[in-house]
């Protein structure tokens, strides 16, 4: 039943971020399994949103819906963020472990699920003029999650708000660096493979 409790606790945490994230870490109210569940739910939310948002608000080309890209577009930023944040905060006297960061971030994403999921049927019963509500709620979900991430960070790492904003910015830079290095490795590998292959062909032709 601990799993269900930890799922349910997200509802408390998103309304009482400071106490909630404190208990999440120190009272062990959160769990990795719940965090992963939220991630999966978020992926499902985004896929459903792309596919089933009402025609008026759906600017996605149905020819180009690719579930794998949808999955990657949630998982990649998530793990880039948690890794970069962990790397930065370890150097900056942050008290959270990688596990704590993953849990806090995943719990902070819950408003995205809770608001966007009901917005899907809602978008099918409103017209363009009433779209202001739709866009308002999508912005609210993003802002809410953003604030929760910051609050979660400052509680998890025992930071002041200013410091958690600063480390967040650094984490974003870190994400960019990781992407850059990843691309670099890919392109170097590609070059190396093609180099070896060229030598092989050269030898094969001469023999």
């Amino acid at each position: 039943m601990k799993y269900l409790d930890s799922l349910k606790f997200s509802l408390y945490a998103i309304f009482h971020p400071f106490k909630g994230f404190w208990d999440l870490k120190h009272e062990k109210r959160g769990s990795i399994s719940a965090a992963l569940t939220f991630l999966v739910l978020l992926i499902v939310t985004y896929i459903l949103r792309r596919q089933y948002t009402g025609f008026i608000f759906n600017e996605n080309d149905p020819k180009e819906l690719n579930v794998f890209i949808e999955i990657i577009s949630v998982l990649l930023p998530f793990f880039l963020w948690t890794t970069a944040n962990w790397a930065i905060t370890t150097l900056m006297e942050g008290e959270g472990s990688y596990r704590d960061i993953v849990i806090a971030t995943a719990y902070a994403l819950v408003p995205l699920i809770l608001i966007n999921l009901p917005l899907i049927p809602f978008s099918r019963i409103i017209n363009m003029e009433e779209g202001a509500f739709y866009f308002f709620f999508t912005s609210v979900s993003v802002l809410w999650s953003g604030v929760l991430i910051l609050a979660g960070l400052s509680v998890t790492h025992q930071y002041t708000m200013g410091k958690s904003v600063f480390t967040s910015l650094l984490s974003v830079v870190g994400m960019g660096l990781m992407i850059f290095i990843g691309l670099l490795v890919f392109s170097l590998l590609q070059q190396m493979i093609s180099f070896v292959y060229t030598i092989y062909r050269e030898i094969a032709f001469r023999l």
């Binding site: 025609f55 008026i56 017209n127 363009m128 003029e129």
Partner: peptide, 18 residues
């Protein structure tokens, strides 16, 4: 309107349809 991908007219028709 859906086949023609015209969201503005779709919205107008949708208002009356609703």
């Amino acid at each position: 309107f859906k086949l023609g991908n015209h969201r503005k007219y779709y919205s107008r028709a949708f208002y009356y349809h609703r």
